[in-house]
Each structure stands twice: as structure tokens, then as C-alpha cells.
Design a binder for these strands. Sequence first.
DNA 1: AAGGATTTCAACCGCTCAAAG
DNA 2: ACTTTGAGCGGTTGAAATCCT
Length: 390
Amino acid sequence: MRKGPWTPAEDEILLEHVRRHGEGNWNAVQRLSGLARCGKSCRLRWANHLRPNLKKGSFAPEEEFLILRLHAQLGNKWARMAAQLPGRTDNEIKNYWNTRLKRRQRAGLPIYPPELQDAIRFGRRLQRQNQASQGTPPPPLLSATRHQAQLPPLQLPPLLDLVSFCPQLEMTPPPTSHPCQLSFAFPVPSLSPPTTPTPSLLRKPQMGLCNYDFNPPTLMSPPYAVKMELPSNQLYQEAAGGGGPRNCGLTEPLLPEPHPLGLEHIKTGELLLLPAVDDHAVRWGNLFCAGDYDCGSNQEGTMETPLQFDFGTEGNGEALGSRMKDMAEFLDLPAPVVLDWCNSDNTELSSAQPSTVVVGEDVAVDMQQLAPSQDWNVNSWPWSNMPGIC
DNA sequence: AAGGATTTCAACCGCTCAAAG
DNA sequence: ACTTTGAGCGGTTGAAATCCT
């Protein structure tokens, strides 16, 4: 049996074998084709290099962020991560992660970027809240678990898809460490278009918040994933509650395992419909919520859900700005624009400073802060000295 | 330009699991 | 019920490539 790097001639033999006999039965390759390679080696070569539709080259920023997000959710489940990244192999993802992990450890940086740590906190908070409110309806829209519960069988548990939502924003964070509050106002997904804006929206009617697309833009993360290689009961065994040994330390999953619905029936190679991308509110919460939040609904309880995020000492404008800026840089987005700061009574601090962040055309983020605004020197912001995380 | 350090990538190894016998 | 076999996963290794001094 040969070992080591594959030659082009060996690749051609293996390709021809697969053309004739199809995938699988790898241990028969040597017998049927004369290739002096063990079955395992053949399978690996095919899966990682020869099978069609493989992506080559470095990861796109969106892919990188998705890997981060998936790793936070799943831990070192490379194959499951690869199933969400079409054309990428578990080996590639594993190599990427290990390289990145080493680099960040050497730099003394946390494994996950701040916005993802925030997402993790947000997810835990969500879970606690939903557990606490068992028996009572969850708050409108915000609940990712409710969203999940509505999924039909054979769908993967929802990923809080940060990747597909890359708002192009610019902000000028406030300079002080005073706590600030963020009010997020989002329409709740509904069959009928929003009709009545909230008072905060009325304050800035030009933001066009009602022009809301409930199918958020997908830059890269596809709505489908083809299940590869694993038998279904093996692929989702852990997520289905099988438990088993957990990772420890840095590679331990940070989010609780999702509870899939009916996944045991998925067949290998089946095209899986991923759940629709979550609502903007959850995503914004994932990205930027650093601390506690309260959520409620407007009087109608259906069309909009203002969310109050209390950033406490950690959530000053500087930290928030840092997260937004990091995200924009991480995703290689154009530089952001605007927002104005206003007092908690919604009076603007300065007419020269608008009081709302414009996030694309889909949503406006209303910001309030308690500290007076002042000019900012971008170079003094904390992220200016941060080494790249990827 | 040279050589050491680091990174990247491909491949292997050991283990587990499920299906088949 | 037990054993064997095939397949896949995650960890690890080592060669090649790249970077840095």
C-alpha cells in the first residue's frame, strides 16, 4: 500500500473508478482498479480533493464568520460545520480553525470576537428567559427557540445567521464610559405589511422602516445544505440529546445544543432546507447585545417589537462602536455612516448629529445615550490597535 | 541571499458507530 | 447476541510554502 502524497496518475485512477462504480465501497478500489491505496485513503482523497463542486482558495469573510458562529454553537464538529459550508471540507475548516486558534492564543486574544461573545451571552439570556417563561407565550419575534419550534420536521435547527446580514453602517460612538441604552425597533414578521409606526419611528419617518424585507439578504450563507457522508443518526446524534463526551477548554461549545426536530429521518445526500434566516432583531441582538435586555411589544403586539438593550458598564458607546466597527472590518464592508446621539428623553443633543443609525434600507436602529456627545478621534478607538483576528 | 520560524495543507491514525453476516 | 466490515470523525503529524530577520 502506498502512503503519502497522491500523484496525478493515482488521482486519475481514482476518478475513473468513481466514474465507473460510484462513490462508496472504498475498500474495493484497490481490487477493482489496481490502485495501491487503502480504502480510507481513497475516501479521503475523493472527499477532500477530487469530488466535484469543491471550493478552492481561501475562505471568504462571510465564510470565516460563519465558521466562528458555528464553532461557538457546535464546538469541534467539523463535519457538521462543513455541511453548512458548501464546497468546503471538514479538513479545511479544521485547519483554518486550528491556525486561527493558535494565532489568537499567541496574541492573547479571546477565541471569539466580541460581537460573537455578545451573541453567546444573548443566546444564553434568551434560553434562560424562555425557560423562565415556560407556559407563557414567548415575547414576540425575539425568541429564536419559538422560531425553531415552528419549523417543520427535517429542518436543521436555526442558525442565528449573522453572516447573511451585513449591514452597511457607520457610527460615531460617544466618547465616555457612561452607560447607554439602545432601542431597537423592528417589525415582527407578518403576512401583512406594517401599518403603524411606533412613536420612535414617527420621530424619524424618513428612515423608511416599514419597508421591511422578511427574507433578509443572503450574501453567502445558502439556504440549503447537502448532507454529506454521515448516516443521519450519526450526524445529529449529539444534537438529538445523545450527549457523549464534551469538549473541554477553548474548544468547548459555548451555546447549548439545539434540539432538532425529526432529524433522525434525514437521508445521506438529502438536500436540507435550512430555516429561514432569523429576524433582524435577533441578529442585531446577537451582534450587539452585551448585557441584559428587556423586550416587549407595542400595543398591537404584532407589528413591531421594540427591544431595550441595557449595556451597563460594558455597553458604553465605545464598546458598541467597537463591535460595529469590528464587524464591518471583519466582513470587509465599506466604512459606515452616521448616527446621532440624543438624550434619554429623545431630544437630540445636536442638530448636526442625527439620532438614528441607518442600516441599509431595511431597518433603523434608534440610539439613545446618557452622556453628552463630542468629537471622536477614530484613531483612539480600541479597535485601532487590535491585531487582525483572522 | 540565507536560514530559521511560522503557517498551511494534505494525509494518516485511532477511535467510534451502524449495518451486515 | 456477537463479530466483522465499512465508513466517517476528530486529532495529529510532517512536508512544503511562506514569512521574517
